[in-house]
Design a protein around this nucleic acid. Structure first.
Lengths: 202, 202
DNA sequence: TCATATACGGAGCAGTGCTCCGTTTGACTA
DNA sequence: TAGTCAAACGGAGCACTGCTCCGTATATGA
């Protein structure tokens, strides 16, 4: 029996909420890199100096938190792909980008799995940024294919899957982490055409 | 104040214990295929018709259970490799075996990860059977390399890693499962030398 | 038949993800 | 500046988990 809630747009987000959102995200990035995606959310909340309820207010599920982390990573990778497309030769740009892609998979331990899951789930909030990132990567691929340097019978999904797979496996055992570059180059060698052998390849 | 425990070898394993051991293992195989390696051990115990304590008596940790499952799979794959070595041409045998390898990874959902972990852990009870399986696979690889059909600068670990990676990624999303054979062939194409192109390849 | 080593099974503990709700606070208004 | 209140906070609590412990039941050998 008081005045009704004011109509119109809702109030702006409170400053403490925004601050906590970023704090949680920053801590989560660190903890996930340390412990993988199974890290305790209580632990993340504690280290961020917020209550568990606050964490859940901002990220209603564990996946929501991981998705936000991953979404930002996707955006960075998309930007990076676009930048490389403008400054490097087709195959070099592609290889450079894929190297950064797999290296990132190691830091975001276990996120490769979440990433692959979004491919089929169009309702995932990640789907959009994941698709955008893949489009940027696919442009690099197309450039290399048009230059005749990468076999034409693969698409962005194939490439994405193979590179994620290498990123994942490299993160499974220390002795494999040491081989990440090598494994990636084995895959890339298979995708690049060798009709025109290039001398002095490492 | 009674007679001391009889010296000499301990009594033979009781029949009910052996029965429960096999029941638990059989149920675990099913449940892991259904739900992955994160399946509830309580659930496995219940479906096997034994108490939780019984499960833990036989398999003191979750890993011990998974290791037993995986060890049996390794033994089968080792046998299979040896059989193929005797009946098929080098590259065909290798491809056939790797196909079975990746297909198995799908049934043993999530076990690829456990598998990779044993590579660096010599204390793991799995290490022996895993190494034996890899040796059998490596013999297939060596045959194909000696025939000049697979590039010489890779070893069994590279092959094992790449194929596990493909097996893993194929299990991450339905749309990728459909591409498993294709992804594997992309990798294999990269490993096989194409100096002698074979017509009519699909 | 009996004695006992062995195996069984589930209550209990400490941890987890996630929900709920009483308390606090930042931001807008007068 | 004081008052108001939606929004945000934070942690107790619930249902689950992996794993331990120990009293009870039983298969086995004498």
């Amino acid at each position: 029996m008081t005045t009704p809630p004011a109509p119109g747009p809702p109030r702006a987000q409170r400053a403490d909420a925004q601050r906590n959102f970023e704090r949680i995200l920053a801590v989560a990035r660190t903890v996930v890199a340390e412990q993988g995606t199974q890290a305790s959310l209580r632990d993340i909340a504690r280290r961020a100096g917020v209550g568990l309820g606050t964490l859940y207010r901002h990220f209603p599920t564990r996946d929501a938190l991981l998705e936000t982390l991953l979404g930002r990573r996707f955006d960075l990778l998309a930007e990076r792909a676009d930048a490389l497309a403008g400054t490097r030769a087709p195959v070099e740009a592609l290889k450079e980008w894929l190297g950064e892609f797999t290296a990132g998979a190691a830091v975001y331990r276990g996120l490769a799995a979440s990433m692959m899951a979004t491919i089929d789930d169009e309702n995932s909030p990640l789907h959009a940024s994941c698709a955008a990132m893949r489009r940027s990567g696919a442009r690099l691929l197309a450039r290399a294919q048009e230059a005749g340097e990468v076999r034409a019978d693969i698409d962005g999904t194939d490439l994405f899957a193979l590179v994620s797979a290498v990123g994942w496996v490299s993160d499974q055992a220390p002795s494999l982490t040491a081989r990440r570059e090598h494994l990636l180059s084995l895959v890339m060698d298979g995708l690049t055409r060798r009709d025109t052998p290039e001398p002095g390849a490492g």
